[in-house]
Design a protein around this nucleic acid. Structure first.
Ligand code: MN
Ligand code: MN
Ligand code: ZN
Ligand code: ZN
Lengths: 160, 160
DNA sequence: GCTACTATAGCAAATGAATCTCATTAAAGA
DNA sequence: TCTTTAATGAGATTCATTTGCTATAGTAGC
């Protein structure tokens, strides 16, 4: 498989943009981050390593990475966007703990069924989806005295 | 069923806050809006009706409405949040057209299966989920020459 | 109703993520 | 090397949202 750098360079050529040290250094840093990141974190991480890039360059580079499919916006929280690199990763969604903030990544075949059904039912061409599930992880769940079930199941039980 | 006003007043009492004309007028306006809205739209709509409320009050009221389950954040786009009232509506997700911006609301039982599976697999207590599906509506799809299928199906077809 | 207490509204000022400006730098192609 | 022009960096700007301040209004007790 092509490296993310090659993907980016192909994109740069295709779009008639210029290869620059800054963009490629930012890209490298993005792919060294495991998990999610935000602009400020990325900036500080580069700074700590002695890399001199301005925030403006980061803000300008991210849309390019997103456009060529290397990075995606994950969520808007704490008043700003969070991102993750996605090249070489299978598509996944996020299960977030409302207690400790832990993020569990998961894949699920039900979403393919759902996409098919939406395409059939509404005549849409489905491009992608963005799903975030919220709940409490085993530790936080027990600390809060909640059962090991979904809110949905609990409701169904109550109705019986 | 209780009215949204009653739900809010109960909440106000529970939290030891004070009933005010402004909050209740904003709430009324929110429930007169069919579809999604943003702070600016809500503010202008009130202004046009001659209702004098400041934006600060709207910004301070919305978190209360959200906290008592009457309103939810729908999406962050165009640099700011969009909301919708949810009390008395069944839970739904959004299918958004990337061409014209049309939003189709849908419910789907696959998501219940998914929640159950996540609860079982990861031991989480699932509270809720937020799903947005993006694609092209029939009109925009045809204008763009796209097939009536999901990106996923297209990929599967290519691999065969 | 009157009073005391204090949460809230309104306004203006502050905040901060994201974008823009513009002088300077440096790719890329000849 | 030289020319052209896209990209960078630093600071200014924008604009949604938050916050501080003070007058006002909701509420409980009389
Ligand atoms: Mn992830
Ligand atoms: Mn909706
Ligand atoms: Zn947790
Ligand atoms: Zn459309």
């Amino acid at each position: 498989m092509e490296s993310e750098l090659q993907v980016f360079q192909d994109y740069i050529r295709r779009r008639d943009l210029r290869r620059t040290r800054e963009r490629e250094r930012i890209l490298q840093e993005v792919f060294e981050i495991h998990g999610h990141f935000d602009v400020d974190g990325l900036y500080l991480q580069l700074k700590q390593k002695g890399v001199k890039v301005s925030k403006a360059s980061i803000y300008r580079a991210l849309p390019l990475f997103i456009d060529c499919g290397l990075v995606r916006e994950v969520e808007f929280s704490e008043g700003h966007w969070h991102y993750e690199h996605i090249y070489g990763h299978s598509h996944h969604n996020h299960l977030r703990c409302l207690g400790c903030g832990e993020i569990q990544e998961f894949e699920n075949q039900f979403l393919n069924c759902l996409e098919e059904q939406l395409a059939r039912e509404y005549g849409y061409y489905i491009q992608n989806h963005h799903l975030q599930v919220q709940g409490f992880c085993p530790a936080c769940r027990q600390a809060a005295g909640l059962p090991a079930a979904s809110n949905f199941l609990k409701k169904v039980d109550n109705e019986q």
